[in-house]
């Protein structure tokens, strides 16, 4: 029974890590291709959540499955889990601060469909 669960955890964790590597690659491509700063933040978010948080959850599952590590597997599992949670809580604060600061600092929003923040508050 436990063998099957361990194998399942191992494969799900490996799949999550592969997905994370792909997300990092695609996020980097997006950073190069997108036209301005605000749109590039979206590509960076793909790199943070898909490229850091999901692989760390996958690492948690892999560490649970690695019996040969003995006691230390709990340390690996909890360390990567706490790191994933902390990245999840702090990354949006960083991108929000960057977006707000650059909008106040008159970084161009072109190309755009609409900019209601500029209409409401102006760019002081």
């Amino acid at each position: 029974m436990w063998e099957v669960v361990n194998q399942l955890f191992l494969y799900i964790g490996m799949a999550l890590i592969v997905v994370g590597a792909l997300c990092d690659l695609i996020g980097a491509l997006g950073l190069l291709r997108f036209p301005n700063f605000f749109v590039r933040i979206h590509a960076a978010t793909v790199g943070v959540i898909g490229g850091a948080v999901y692989p760390l959850f996958g690492l948690t599952l892999i560490a649970f499955a690695c019996d040969f590590l003995g006691y230390w597997r709990w340390l690996f599992a909890s360390g990567s889990f706490i790191t994933a949670i902390i990245i999840m809580f702090t990354a949006p604060a960083g991108s929000h601060a960057l977006a707000r600061g650059s909008h106040r600092g008159r970084v161009p929003v072109e190309p755009k469909v609409c900019d209601f923040l500029e209409e409401d508050k102006g760019r002081s």
Partner: peptide, 23 residues
């Protein structure tokens, strides 16, 4: 706000607490 920012495709730029709206 953090949930909106954490999903790719939407980023909260500013919060208006009196008007009760995000930008």
């Amino acid at each position: 706000a953090c949930s909106i920012t954490n999903t790719p495709g939407t980023v909260v730029v500013d919060v208006d607490e009196e008007g009760k709206k995000y930008y």
